[in-house]
Design a binder for these strands. Structure first.
Lengths: 142, 142
DNA sequence: CTCCACCTTGACGCCGACGTCAAGGCAAGG
DNA sequence: CCTTGCCTTGACGTCGGCGTCAAGGTGGAG
């Protein structure tokens, strides 16, 4: 099949496919007229790329999965390199979720405070720099 | 004070401050020589920008908070527009955390599967396929 | 006077993953 | 033959938030 068809089947664009090729992720055979020629295995590769990037993987991170598929493995994550990416990504995700949850807490508290009609606007006596009178005193920086 | 001092006090760079000004977030008075002139209220504004962007707000989203401070309110979130941004951001955050948690689950499951020694691969008749006699199954979660 | 640190504006670079336009080739149908 | 539709390569645009360089102005110390 040609690039347009593959793009449609994979639910992406020809531009994206050419980009993947330029990144060395999706080498393409060429027909006599110079047109790129793809088959089902390429559709499989593109699907792998799409599903991985779809859940937050960078393009570069999909490479091990593609190599894995290309070397005949049944799934892209059947290889150690892919599993390593999984592990790393999972750790990143946990880190990110943790930070975002902390922000969420702070935000929730701030929202609650900000929604109070008219309580303690310029509240005297209490030195006003302690807006973290909640629970956490951890990790002041970063 | 001048831009360099403000930058240092606020823990940022002169480039960033000029950028904020270009975005209309931090208008600056000018001295006779054309140099930007700032005071404590500007430091307050920059601090507001930094703390908000630091927890994931886009620059543009800090605008209501700055307007709020500039109109004399004690905190940047004392105004309805700011509260609205809070609400929106909190919703975004919940959405994001939700999606990421879902991805995390999928990833965890995939990782668990991918880490299983050798079940139904195309593995070419490898008799001694038990090369995983080490410590597999280490820390399946997290 | 020079030197130096600071300031000014302008403009290009960067990152990722493409979008979009330009200019042209090639095959099939009317 | 001409149009239509797909394909090709090349190259610039996008978004955010600045970094970095260039070329020049200014004010105070030595």
């Amino acid at each position: 099949m040609r690039i347009g068809e593959l793009a449609e089947l994979a639910g992406t664009t020809t531009r994206a496919l050419r980009y993947y090729e330029a990144q060395g992720l999706l080498p393409a055979r060429r027909g006599a007229n110079g047109h790129r020629e793809y088959d089902q295995s390429d559709l499989r590769l593109v699907s792998e790329i799409r599903s991985l990037t779809g859940i937050g993987f960078a393009l570069e991170e999909t490479r091990p999965f593609l190599d894995c598929l290309r070397t005949g493995h049944p799934t892209g994550d059947s290889c150690p390199a892919s599993v390593a990416v999984y592990r790393r990504k999972l750790a990143e995700l946990d880190e990110l979720i943790g930070r975002m949850s902390a922000v969420r807490e702070r935000l929730r508290d701030q929202l609650a405070l900000a929604e109070l009609p008219f309580t303690t606007p310029v509240c005297p006596t209490s030195a006003g720099s302690d807006l973290d009178h909640g629970d956490n005193a951890e990790d002041p920086d970063r």
